[in-house]
Amino acid sequence: GTLHLNGVTVKVPSLEKAIKAAKKFAKKYNLEVQVHGNTVHVH
Score class of each variant (00 low, 15 high):
Thr2Gln: 08
Lys28Gly: 02
Thr39Gln: 12
His41Ile: 14
Phe25Cys: 11
Leu3Ala: 02
Val42His: 04
Asn30Tyr: 10
Val40Gly: 03
Val33Met: 06
Lys27Phe: 04
Glu32Ser: 12
Gly1Ala: 15
Lys17Asp: 12
Pro13Ala: 13
Ala21Gly: 02
His41Glu: 13
Val10Tyr: 15
Lys23Arg: 12
Leu5Asp: 02
Leu15Val: 09
Val40Lys: 02
His41Asp: 05
Lys17Phe: 13
Thr9Trp: 13
Pro13Met: 09
Val42Ala: 04
Ile19Ser: 01
Gln34Tyr: 14
Val10Asp: 02
Lys11Ser: 10
Thr39Asn: 09
Thr9Leu: 14
His36Met: 12
Thr39Glu: 14
Thr2Ile: 15
Leu15Ser: 01
His43Ser: 12
Asn38Thr: 10
Gly1Leu: 10
Ala18Ser: 02
Ser14Ala: 05
Val42Leu: 13
Val40His: 03
Asn6Thr: 06
Lys24Val: 06
Asn6Lys: 06
Thr39Cys: 15
His4Gln: 08
His41Ala: 11
Glu16Val: 09
Gly7Ser: 08
Val35Pro: 03
Gly37Met: 06
Leu3Gly: 02
Thr9Arg: 06
Val40Phe: 02
Leu31Asp: 00
Lys27Arg: 08
Val42Thr: 03
Ala22Leu: 15
Ser14Thr: 10
His43Asp: 04
His36Trp: 07
Gly7Asp: 05
Ala22Tyr: 06
Val35Gly: 02
Val10Trp: 15
Lys11Cys: 15
Ile19Leu: 09
Ala26Pro: 00
Ile19Thr: 03
Leu5Ala: 05
Ala26Gln: 04
Glu32Gln: 13
Glu32Ala: 09
Gly37Glu: 04
His43Arg: 09
Tyr29Lys: 00
Thr2Pro: 04
Thr39Met: 10
Gly7Trp: 12
Gly7Cys: 15
Tyr29Trp: 10
Lys20Ile: 12
Ala26Phe: 07
Val35Asn: 00
Leu15Asp: 00
Asn38Arg: 03
Val40Asn: 01
Pro13Ser: 14
Gly1Thr: 11
Lys28Asp: 04
His4Gly: 03
Val42Lys: 03
Leu5Trp: 15
Lys20Pro: 00
Glu16His: 10
Tyr29Pro: 00
Ala18Val: 06
Gly7Leu: 08
